[in-house]
Amino acid sequence: MHIIVPLRQVPDLVEDLEIDASGKDLDREWLKYKMNEFDDHALEEALLLKEEVGGAVTAVALDGGEVDKLLFTAAAKGADRLVKVRGDFPTPLNSHAMARALAGAIQGLDYDLILTGVQAVDELDGQVGVLLAHYLGIPHVSVVTDVQVHDGKAVVHKEYAGGVMGEFDVILPAVLGIQAARQTPRYAPVSRVRMAMRKSTIEEVSAEASAEGAPDIRKLFKPEKGAGAQMLEGSPEAVAEKIIHILKEKGIVQ
């Protein structure tokens, strides 16, 4: 079983995000990137599957940011092969472009299953996993919480609102958008990451990508949020009244 896990870097929300001079993108000069948390789950699920049925896990990531650290961390966790995709990609890189670049790179690789994180915080134009499946011409299921593979197919659980799930058979190869791995993503001890930096190699492939398929960004702006709380004052009676008003306004109580 050859499993490919595309890993993407997303802006780290721990930092204050600033908007650049054009107003159409984040100020990327100071931006800190980190692995999309759902991709971490996808990688974990892939490693669990490998442990169950054997095979290999290939981590694929587009060049840029701290991509090497990202790939080495994947190696430290157990990825067998690391692939960096190079190319002349548009900035900001939207989901369509990313999916096209990944499809271009993955086409040349051997794979039975592709696991992606179900979504990411910067997917303005849709989910990379689903787009990737269509560019590769293989089926996909999103919001997956459980995967088992046997006889050339995957049995997956897809979660809906309220916790009800649908069970599906999926003929492989396929793309699955992982919502949560069966267990918390494993820890990559830093010594292992450092060892990977010394011993693992990152293969490089090139790919092309057009950004076609996204809307045109007019501007970015920050949602209004006052500094700190708006204080509700008055007698307990008056305060209770105000709270209920707010709850009604937000549709929380009728």
């Binding site: 849709g126 689903v130 787009l131 269509h134 809307p215």
Partner: peptide
Amino acid sequence: YTSMGMDLASALSADLGIPLAAY
């Protein structure tokens, strides 16, 4: 933009080559 919509919106965008805005 729900569990079902996630599967459909992007698929339709890729299949038909039409633009999509999510979230």
